[in-house]
Write a protein that binds this DNA or RNA. Structure first.
Lengths: 204, 204
DNA sequence: TACATTTGCTAAACACTGTTTAGTATATTC
DNA sequence: GAATATACTAAACAGTGTTTAGCAAATGTA
């Protein structure tokens, strides 16, 4: 009975079609203007059809959020070849900040928005987040083991590093860096310099 | 012609009534459930009346956002008596984190949400934000002048301190600290410990 | 006081939003 | 070929922010 398999395939194709359209609209026009009706019109189906493939709007954005994490972790993994964990930590941080600057909407969805949260709670674990955080935690553990950074609790250090870079880029993305009253490129330079400065301060 | 003055007074009273109702609804049920219609019903006027006193919903939340800043700055000012700027910096940081924990909705509106931004752009300056940031900047400048913290650019240090605490509390408020898979009070302890650790690392 | 004007307010509508329901064609199975 | 299951949609529901047109009462002028 190959029909069942074909139907399963078609179901996945339809889900992909919806996600592709939603992602495109999201990156082009932002979250608010990516309505179910807009997606429906884009893929030339009725709005009700989308609810046959996704429970609600949040589930669609949970999938987009997961795809964005795949992209970030892929970028992280490119630093696997850096053997010195302290050097690797720096590279990861720079990649993280760069990712946020180049994909502000993705970053927003991953680390700021409440949209994918209902799904995360439903699954009881934030798999995508754990994967990325785990990568930093591993690198940090190696730094501590090799005495490359000042000794401190592993989790406190990890939370500190993550909070620092998240603070920098989220204040930038949600337009609070405007208090500096400096041009955009100068603000970015300050963000980058702040990270380098912080990284130095971690050193033994 | 005292009528004109009375009318002006009545106009302000109505604005206050709307803000009070909106604030109460916002703190009780959150931003999304604070609709113009809900506010209108609460104050027993029609929804259209609200638009005679405020340009749009964003303007209402801009005023609430300003009031929240007044509250935070007032808390900051309580540390004016601490003569040692490094000690004062620590006290400000603890107050900031505490404020975020105790008033997450206010914090969200002040530093995360996009809602009051259109108004901020309209005024071309983020007065409320500048006031709070300026207070930190002053304290930090004194720390640098008195050689109490490691020498670095004033703005880079200010952005670093602010980003660090904002990162901590915004990850907590927007529920990303769930990756730690620890109870809420433990997470708060980690946040507090991370700040104390960071504060230490600033020392000369 | 009598009329004209301004002010304060609202009912209703407009253009959206996410989501659900009931019903209709088409595809599949027996 | 008839019965069943699947895929899809039109329309509605309940909500959102915001605008428009009109009405009644307060105010200004004669």
């Amino acid at each position: 009975m190959a029909i069942k398999e074909r139907k399963e395939r078609e179901k996945q194709d339809m889900r992909n079609l919806i996600i592709e359209s939603a992602t495109q609209l999201f990156l082009k026009h932002g979250y608010d203007k990516t309505s179910i009706r807009n997606i429906a019109e884009d893929i030339e189906y009725s709005p009700a059809t989308i609810y046959l493939y996704f429970k609600d709007k949040d589930e669609i954005f949970y999938v987009i959020h997961e795809n964005a994490f795949d992209l970030l972790v892929k970028l992280f993994r490119e630093h696997d070849t850096i053997s010195n964990p302290y050097e690797r930590l720096g590279a990861i941080g720079r990649t993280y900040i760069n990712f946020a600057f180049e994909n502000p909407d993705y970053y927003d969805l991953m680390f700021i928005m409440r949209a994918p949260l209902s799904q995360i709670k439903h699954e009881e674990r934030w798999n995508a987040g754990e994967c990325a955080f785990g990568y930093v935690l591993d690198t940090l553990t190696q730094c501590l083991d090799q005495n490359l950074i000042r000794p401190a609790d592993k989790y406190i250090t990890a939370v500190s590093v993550w909070s620092f870079v998240h603070g920098l880029v989220s204040l930038y993305i949600r337009e609070r860096m405007c208090i500096l009253e400096m041009p955009d490129d100068v603000v970015r330079d300050i963000v980058n310099a702040s990270f380098e400065n912080f990284l130095q301060s971690l050193k033994t």
